[in-house]
Amino acid sequence: MSLQEELVGPPPAKLIVDHVSKWFRTTRQTVHALDDVSLNIGEGEFVCLVGPSGCGKSTLLDIISGLEVPDQGTVTADNEPVLNPGRHRLVMFQESALFPWLDVTGNVMFGLKLKPGLTNKERLEVAKFFIQLVGLEKFSAAHVHELSGGMKQRVALARALAPNPRVLLMDEPFAALDALTREQLYSDIQRIWQKRRKTIVFVTHNVREAVCLADRVILFSRNPGRIREQFDIPLPRPRDINSIQLAEHAGEITRALKGHSTGEVSE
């Protein structure tokens, strides 16, 4: 594989979630985390999973990544069943999960080194490219503790993008950041996604964030975790989180979200 191909990447993947159910059993109780969830995600589609905490959206992300195994149902990525984690589906976590014993370049190189068919020189090129893409070229030798929260998430993004996965899974990656840093990252994510189309599944409880980023927003309800409604977001990109059209879409979804949660209380 040439370096050029490496930087452009394979086609994004199609994901099929087929009748997935998951229970978490502890000695005290059994939680029905996901109940018969089915979902088709197209190649290169940006999908946001939204819902109250405990609705199973993060569990679904873990199942798609292969970190968790569903009790019922299957997940298929490009016609292959997902049985284990693999470098075609990389995850960006809420905490950056960067390795403190490595510098920025070392962290971005971590996944690359596990990818066969590249020389170390090419790997370094690729790492540089992605560190530049997230705007951290001045910090390539910095250590994790020297970075701000926003910078850490940028490194985590570069680390997830560098091995060229076909799917990017993001689990509330900006939840711990301040509003200004988040807004900057929304535009960065959109810019990067337009440049390097990946299939992205993005979990959040922030409705505006979801509307700002997604082609499609999937609304979950809890107890048990189910898909309640889906919303297409036909807004042009790049989107501004403060725009009025965006707020209208977000309002619609928020009303639906509240409707479900009040409905649950009266149940």
């Binding site: 995850v91 905490e95 971590f110």
Partner: peptide, 21 residues
Amino acid sequence: PIYARAARTMGSRGLHKWTKV
């Protein structure tokens, strides 16, 4: 545990996981 999870998604297992993570 997040370190081990991150490493697993990137394909690190076995000896690699023990020595590098």
